[in-house]
Structure formats: C-alpha cells, structure tokens
Design a protein around this nucleic acid. Structure first.
Lengths: 171, 171
DNA sequence: CCTCCACGTTGCGATATCCGCAGCTTCGGG
DNA sequence: CCCGAAGCTGCGGATATCGCAACGTGGAGG
C-alpha cells in the first residue's frame, strides 16, 4: 500500500519527498484547506471554499480524500491530565537491532498514544497515557521493556501541559 | 483571566483536582461526548445525543461549553513531516530557577507546538516544528537557549512518525 | 490533428443538520 | 415558601451536507 510502483520511469526527477514518506504530494489548495480545519475542525465546507477559492463540493471531495488517505484526521483533542485521573509520560527508548519493528510493537499498545523515531540519544520517543501510577509502572517496566530489541528506557512523567496547538500552517 | 477568585469560601472542601488543574470536573456524559468526538470530530450532534442519551440541543450546549472552557478542541491533525518540507524535533530542557516562567516563554513561540512540564532528567519537553534545518538550528540555539533560566537543552530530531491517536477514552 | 479517457470541478435539488428561542424541571440559597 | 441559576427538551427557520448529472481541461494514443 505504501510501496506503490512509482519508482519506474523518471521518478528520480520528481521531488523526492513523495518517495520518502507515505503521503502523496499536496498542492497549495489542499494545504489551505488543512489550515482552515486546523483552526476549526467543524468549519462548514462552504466557508472553507470561500476562503480557499473553491466550490463547496470541491472542498468536500478533497477533505474526504485527505481523510481516506490518512493525511489528516478531524478529532477532538484534550489534555488527559485535565480531563481526569490519569498518569501521562514521555518515554525515551534505546534500541538494539531493528528500530522499525520495535516501533511497530509499541504502536500496537493502546496506551502508547504517540510513537516517533528520532535521531539523538534516544531511538524512539513514546508518549504513554495511563489510568494511574500502577498502570504506568506496568506499561513501562513490564510491557515496553519486554519488547525484543529494547535496550533501555528513560521516563519523563508529565506534571503539567502548558501548550498544545495544531496550527503549524498558520503563521 | 486564570486567577479568578475561587479561593474564597470553602473551596478547600471540594475535590482538589479542580484547584490543581484548570478545568472544572467532567461528568460521565461529557466524557462520553468527548469520546464520540475523538472518533470523529464532525459527528452530528443528533448522533452523539443518541449515543449518550441526550437531546441534540443539550449536546450542542455541552460541546460549546467544553470548547469555550478550553477543555477540548476540535481540529484537523496531520503529520507535519508528511504534509511537507519541515523539520520537527523534541527538545528536552533543563531549567535553573522558575520553570513556569520558562514554560511560558517557550509557549509564546509559534514554532513550539507542544510544551509540557515533566519530572525526570528534563524539566520541560518541547516539540518544535520548523521550515528546514536552518530554521530548526535558529530556534534551538538562538531562541530557546536564549530564554533566561534555560541551563541546557538536548534535541531529538524526528525521523518518522509511527503513531498518532487521540482515543484514550475508547479502550 | 483529432479522439478518447480520466480527473477534477461546478450547479442544483432533496435531505439532514445546525442554531436560537421559549418553556419546563430541578436544585440550592435566602 | 419563594426565587434565581443551570440544565434539558421541543420546535421552526436558516444553513449545511450529500448525491447526481453535466461541463471543462489535460494527457495518452491513434
């Protein structure tokens, strides 16, 4: 599904961005649509169309395609700490062997909300959301460290969320 | 705006969670509404009402209040690396002196998308989104390290986002 | 050069949703 | 007991969403 046959002809001539990551390239209009929805995920299609210079139906189709392709998702986001009784932490992971497979295994855990491969003194950064301290302990010490290839971990328990935005497009 | 006079009367008697974090306490119905919107931020109010046992208008009022209070936001989220040409990194920060004020200063920067106070070998974790390598260098070495109280930083450049979900409520 | 095909776009009607309003009930304080 | 605040419901008009058919454009092939 990701490794489509784009590599044939003169694919090397095109912007290599598409071959490096999964998503198809986005034009300026789709970018503008995403910006609109980053400000307000429920903004009407007609209003978006007026903002980006497109018809309502055109916006609708492009939004649907962006959602289907997994390029973007429209969701409610909260601060779990504010919403209630939960422990949250960022966990740095060091891996020996294949990093991808470890990332895959961690992504399969429902408690891991955010998994990213990094360069630096950690190979992976993982954000975990737990019910309480016992649950957090269990996830970090029994589940994550039990994954084959995990050499060591370091935890940063969240004390307070200070900022959380998704408007990288608008500045 | 944040320091309202809640501290008067018998405030100490109420559940201390509210005084520790910003948000007022949420009942089971609001939680259920949030769960619905975590699955699909554009789900119609009537459908949510049917799912949680409330009228359409009641759902609408609750959602509006949750948005106004800043408890939740309904937005489009993407992987910036997928959407295009950007450098992203997690930055661990060590602080001497007041951590809050440093967090405040970092939150004011538009490149800092995510700022959280932590316990562990970092006092703050900051996610930064940049145009390119030059921009990233500028933000980390000139802007973040220039904030009074910042003792040191360590950077983890994002290579690939593996997982990104917001459905902590549904499991 | 022309034709055909694929894709994105447009306009329009039918349906569903959103929104403001008024009334009703409950709960707590005076 | 009365009163005010807060929450829920039902309703009607304005709006938005959705599916469909038609149009315009650019690329591939004849």
């Amino acid at each position: 599904m990701h490794s489509e046959a784009v590599a044939s002809r003169s694919a090397d001539q095109k912007d290599s961005r598409e071959s490096r990551n999964g998503g198809p390239q986005l034009d300026a209009v789709s970018l503008a649509i995403i910006e609109q929805l980053q400000e307000d995920g429920r903004r009407p299609y007609a209003a978006i169309g007026k903002a980006v210079g497109l018809s309502e139906a055109a916006v609708r189709q492009r939004v649907q395609k962006l959602l289907d392709q997994g390029v973007m998702q429209i969701v409610a986001v909260t601060d779990p700490l504010t919403v209630g009784f939960r422990r949250q932490a960022m966990v740095g992971v060091n891996v020996e062997g294949d990093v991808e497979s470890v990332a895959e295994a961690l992504s399969a855990m429902s408690e891991c909300e955010y998994v990213v491969m990094t360069a630096g003194s950690f190979d992976l950064m993982v954000e975990v959301v737990c019910e309480d301290d016992d649950h957090l302990l269990e996830v970090i010490n029994r589940r994550i460290r039990a994954v084959p290839g995990v050499r060591s971990t370091e935890s940063f328990v969240y004390l307070k969320l200070k900022k959380q935005t998704y408007m990288w497009g608008t500045r």
